[in-house]
Simulated scan of single mutants.
Amino acid sequence: MSDWEAPRVLLAVDLVILTVRGSSLQVLLVERGVEPFEGALALPGGFLRDVEEDIPAAARRELEEEAGLADEPHLEPLGVYGEPGRDPRGRVISVAHLAIAPRLPEPVAGTDAAQAWWKPVDDVLSGRLELAFDHRRIVADGVERARAKLEHSALATAFCGDTFTIAELQQVYEAVWGAQLDPRNFYRKVQAAPGFIVPAGDERRPGNGRPARLFRAGPTDSLNPPMVRSAQ
């Protein structure tokens, strides 16, 4: 074993940044400005600068350099992707990070990205938009993580205003889960989760319809029982 040499492995970061825009869940994509896959859509990301750079710091740096998002959103580890052949430049292991946050600004492309956009995740998951490398798989994993977060946490209220109706909260769930929900069943599930939402004491009249009660986010961060998708 004295002649053994460590294999050459490159370490990278990829970023799945999700937000709700309009009535759809959208993901941040960039147009690659360099080879490989020059001109193709991809997740923002890149290689660590050197052996001293921390992985979370590299993820934050790439998010700022490739999309102009500096202070937000909060990033969390999503997974490690390292199958041989996933990158034509050699053996590349990527540590993917996820963020799902409301009211994110328009991205501004820079460094290795020629352009940056918000794109509907449905277009990515369906294959209508082709992504470089194995980024469709990484997006799919990030979307599934985000959908699970809405099952078990009160995250959905962050995408609403200070006060909101049950129908507006349902629209957030439908956007993230990619499915239409039965209003009565949704209302029952929301009311069954203590501390999820609390009455705001006001009503809103939607056009000529009946007044709708207003709510605000409650004190809890975790939902018990959870808002299980299969039960909707």
Rank of each mutant, 00 (worst) to 15 (best):
A109E: 03
I138V: 07
L131N: 07
F133D: 14
F186H: 07
W118I: 04
E130P: 04
Y187A: 15
L150C: 01
P105H: 12
A154V: 10
L104I: 02
V124G: 03
L155A: 10
W117E: 15
Y81D: 00
A175I: 01
Q171G: 10
L104M: 06
Q180R: 13
A148K: 13
D182E: 08
R145E: 15
P102H: 06
V124L: 08
A179S: 11
E106V: 13
I166M: 07
D71M: 11
I100G: 07
D71Q: 15
L75K: 04
D134I: 12
H135L: 04
L104W: 03
G85L: 04
G142N: 00
L125Y: 13
Y173C: 03
R128H: 11
E72L: 14
T165F: 06
I138W: 03
V143H: 10
R188A: 11
V92L: 02
A96M: 12
W177G: 10
A146V: 02
V190F: 09
R145V: 04
R136Q: 11
A132T: 05
G161C: 00
P105W: 14
A146E: 14
D162C: 03
A175M: 06
A132I: 03
R128L: 07
D162W: 09
V92P: 01
G79T: 10
A175K: 04
Y173T: 06
A101T: 07
K149G: 10
V176A: 09
L78Y: 09
L98Q: 14
R137E: 14
R103L: 11
Q180I: 14
R147V: 06
V143S: 08
